[in-house]
Design a protein around this nucleic acid. Structure first.
Lengths: 210, 210
DNA sequence: GTCTATAATTCGATAGAC
DNA sequence: GTCTATCGAATTATAGAC
């Protein structure tokens, strides 16, 4: 029988530090040597566990997406599984709330996560796609339900609007990553206020159509 | 008397290529050797004319800001110099229109410029500040006039809203940098349509207040 | 102003002992 | 799985001839 209580294993330790440094300095600005120094592990360990710098980045992205995307889809599922089409306010709340609540509950790790998620969309193209592949799984679902809510709008119209809503979420996450606050603070009440502000900010704009 | 007709001088050639490569690959992902290779100049020329990689980046930012910021302030000046406070639609158009019109008129160079401006806000922190210093000169002016238009809203409320509007502009510029199109195309009619869509998308959200 | 040559680091990745 | 040692390549920056 192996040890039950053990120190944080090397692999997870590397992932934690890599998430912070990729988020702070970007992919190109991060060096494996900087990661292993802060993680207190050997340089060869990163190649043993992940293979390369790029595969380490993908591993970090996967770990984040596997927590965030299901939470968004579950929240959205509340509305897709009934006949009545949800209001745009419902849809927007299902979009903003899961990542912001998750991050505020994570404390300091949530600040790091915010910065990493924001950085993913800011990466130059070959790297950015590595993140998009994992995160944009929910995007199609939101587009579908938006189409039901707004049958008068074309698909391409809803696409550029959702794209701007994503930009707003990413910017909000970036601010969390830099200030540690969701607008005014990090308590659950303040996070809920921020969510409702964001929903109000974008909902009217979603309703317009050409 | 010197030559009137001459080849593009080294300094400007470096700036042009650097703007493209910084925009495409970011600061950390761009190498001086890559720039001088594409520019067809010698590696020593960069240090002779600019001093260092970071100072070259600042020089590119300055050249961009010196064209964009005055255009925004001039457009905004139409409304600040009269007693009647402008509508939020007027203010938002003064914010979106100058950069988008400028870029669409620049053709291929405008696509490169879009990508660079978008990349500036995406840079990790020490580099990002180099850009903010030059671009955010107009931000305070927009905040002031928004405060006149919305005396019921607090300063901090207007600040996070303007921050999100900036994120929307940056995202739109990023899309131009990747697709070459302002939403649907690059003709002046299509650009004007895109501007009015963006204005309509954000204006209602600006009017809300707690 | 422009060039060659090179200094001085630093990078990702690997080989091989344990 | 973890370590040391190191390879080969690439980086910014500079020195000095022209």
């Amino acid at each position: 029988m192996k040890n039950i209580v053990t120190t944080i294993d090397t692999k997870e330790q590397i992932l934690n530090v890599a998430e912070r440094q990729f988020g702070e300095k970007g992919f190109a600005g991060t060096t494996l040597r900087g990661v292993i120094k802060e993680a207190g592990v050997n340089i060869a360990a990163v190649h043993y566990h992940f293979g390369s710098k790029e595969e380490l980045f993908v591993a970090v992205v996967r770990r984040v997406a596997q927590q965030m995307v299901p939470a968004q889809l579950k929240e959205l599922g509340k509305y897709t599984n009934q006949d009545k089409t949800p209001s745009v306010e419902n849809i927007m709340e299902a979009f903003f709330a899961p990542p912001l609540r998750m991050i505020s509950q994570m404390g300091e790790a949530g600040v790091i996560r915010s910065q990493f998620i924001g950085r993913c969309r800011a990466e130059p193209l070959p790297i950015q796609r590595l993140g998009d592949r994992e995160f944009n799984e929910s995007q199609q679902c939101f587009l579908d339900i938006l189409q039901r809510a707004f049958p008068n709008q074309t698909r391409s119209e809803l696409e550029w609007k959702l794209d701007l809503v994503i930009a707003i979420l990413i910017r909000t996450l970036n601010q969390v990553g830099q200030s540690g606050k969701v607008m005014t603070g990090n308590s659950s009440e303040e996070v809920e206020i921020a969510i409702s502000r964001l929903v109000k900010f974008v909902s009217e704009g979603m309703k317009n159509f050409d």
